[in-house]
């Protein structure tokens, strides 16, 4: 049963007009989520991506959201103020239709966790031009049990390969260990 709880909602406000395209957000995100923390960085592992087409003046920081098993039935393409954005440009999903928000080596999905434990998400802290800012508010919500990171990863593996294969693999791996 879900319980009613007071919860802090963090909203990252994205002002694309202020983005200078420097990608510091990508860098610091990947560094923060390295293990051990900050031991390496690699924007390809980042949970934020700046969709960037300088000559068309397109700069859109997008955050990694839910993992999607399958792509949408249809795709969307926006034109705003005469600028045509890439297909699915604003979508946060880690989805089979594109390369965004996947670990470059394993292909495992990435998801923004708002840099848990930090005062504010580090992408916000490192965005000194204020394209990214963070607002907090309190709300009463019904809270679900939070899936641990490992569960999210496992769930995606199960979606991908089926439960049996994953279980077999884990069993085999534990024998080796």
């Amino acid at each position: 049963m879900a319980e009613k709880k007071k919860k802090t909602i963090k909203t990252i406000k994205i002002n694309v007009d202020k983005c200078n395209g420097c990608r510091a957000c990508e860098l610091i995100c990947s560094a923060f989520h390295a293990a051990p923390k900050y031991s390496s960085n690699n924007p390809a592992r980042s949970r934020i991506r700046v969709i960037r087409e300088p000559l068309s003046d397109i700069y859109v920081p997008v955050y990694a959201g839910e993992y999607a098993v399958a792509e949408c039935a249809g795709r969307d393409k926006y034109t705003i103020d005469g600028k045509e954005y890439d297909e699915c440009a604003f979508c946060r999903a880690s989805c089979p239709s594109r390369g965004e928000f996947k670990e470059p080596d394993s292909g495992l999905p990435l998801k923004c966790d708002m840099c848990e434990g930090e005062e504010e998400p580090l992408c916000v802290k490192w965005c000194t031009v204020d394209a990214l800012t963070c607002e907090e508010r309190e709300e009463e919500v019904e809270e679900d049990v939070k899936m641990e990171d490992i569960e999210i990863g496992m769930a995606s593996m199960v979606d991908r390969y089926g439960l049996q294969k994953v279980m077999d693999t884990v069993a085999r791996m534990s024998k080796k260990a």
Binding site: N20, G21, C22, R23, A24, L27, P54, L55, S56, D57, Y59, T128, V129
Partner: peptide
């Protein structure tokens, strides 16, 4: 001038995207 822009991982906006009338955009 369309936008002030930066190099990788830098908050200083020393560059700009320039679009002269009738010509392609450059930086």
């Amino acid at each position: 001038r369309k936008r002030l822009i930066s190099c990788y991982n830098c908050p200083m906006t020393c560059g700009a995207t320039i679009q002269p009338p009738g010509l392609p955009t450059y930086m």
